[in-house]
Design a protein around this nucleic acid. Structure first.
Lengths: 213, 213
DNA sequence: GACCACTATATCGAATCGATATAGCGAAAG
DNA sequence: CTTTCGCTATATCGATTCGATATAGTGGTC
């Protein structure tokens, strides 16, 4: 789920982890607040699978590899930090920016994740998918919306006869959630209608121009 | 989060894992669909912490199994049987059940989790908390509602100026999510007003000559 | 020069999910 | 009668995500 979002952002431009998090938080923050504990592992596995490439960007415009200057702070804590870092020499990274670039394989994976991947159970996952839906073909976009709609309708139907024997608070929560789901459905209905209108630009026009089989 | 829900159910009566899942799904399913992969580990850690006790007992005192006369055929009947079973949950007491009972420590933990524990970031967590809010003291209940409200207001404010430079789909998702949050807030407002009315049972207590409408 | 806020990467443990394995049992199907 | 099917019931595994925490460079302020 997060992989898809990251790839979607990298479609626009190359980014490093911190920037990815900021863009997600600033633009889609109300939808999904993603933590670093998710982003960095996600970037690592995307790189490992070949979907993105990391380019170690230097501090200056020359972009050369940074000279590994030792932390000569003179403080005791600094020396201890160096020792600790040497004791765990896993990649022992210098704190430079790692700028990631999407590969062809990544673009392929992105569209696949967008169209089929993952569940569209929760609003989080579906919302992120829809937020990048401009990268989908029109019929795939429509299919995404309709599948989500069907899922919500089913969820609503299941909750129909369940309100019995609940106290005020539980019933209020269930009722409010059901109302929210109903509103999600009508929102999806508007989106679906809009999609169909874009696909058939003259729905009430019965001339021979728009051939429908 | 799940621990709280399990303890809340066990406050009512002793249950085993499968029943816990069914009750959650049937009653609060629209809110949170919990999988066995969460429930059984949760029960294990609750038992390990002393909040619940497992009694290896067979069929409990409820024992009255309804005889399901079901003259149905094939796979279609299977679906119908599922639907009917959900409406009329029959407690089949079968082999090797682990029935869990809440302890005093568990009741203590339950109220603590309900009032303070965990984040109330997502609707899932808060909804489950509120669903069991009858076990809270009135002022703790009010505090829960108000903290959630403040959190949503902040979230909404953060998303104010973020709509720029998003395409149609992303903007639609963000806008719809913001609308949902706004509706959540007014729902909370109604609940808070209702709580305050219950706490001050005579809001129209007008000693002076006043207008009562 | 001390302090603080922001940028930046990384790791850890815990919680949850979805899939899967295993098995008993009742009823319909053949 | 035996097979098959579906429901009940417990458990585990790998993957993902979160929140907390550690580390460190940079730039601005008092």
């Amino acid at each position: 789920m997060l992989d898809m979002a990251i790839l979607g952002l990298l479609e626009e431009r190359d980014l490093h982890g911190y920037e990815i998090r900021r863009q997600l938080r600033d633009n889609l923050g109300i939808l999904a607040n993603v933590s670093f504990g998710s982003i960095y592992p996600a970037l690592t596995r995307l790189e490992k699978s070949g979907a993105v490439q990391a380019t170690d960007s230097g501090p200056g415009p020359e972009g050369q590899a940074r000279t590994p200057k030792a932390p000569h702070t003179g403080s005791l804590s600094g020396e201890l930090a160096v020792l600790r870092a040497r004791r765990h020499p896993t990649t022992h990274s210098r704190r430079g920016k790692k700028v990631y670039r999407i590969t062809d394989k990544g673009r392929q994976l992105f569209v696949q994740l967008l169209a089929e991947g993952g569940t569209l159970d929760d609003a989080r996952s579906f919302g992120l998918r829809l937020a990048f839906a401009r990268h989908l073909a029109p019929q795939a976009r429509l299919s995404l919306l309709e599948r989500r709609r069907a899922q919500l309708v089913q969820r609503l139907a299941q909750a129909e006869g369940a309100n019995v024997e609940l106290d005020v608070y539980a019933r209020s929560v269930v009722q409010h959630t059901a109302d929210s789901v109903a509103q999600d459905i009508s929102w999806l209905d508007r989106l679906i209608a809009s999609e169909r209108a874009a696909f058939h630009p003259a729905p009430a026009d019965l001339t021979y121009e728009g051939d429908i089989r």
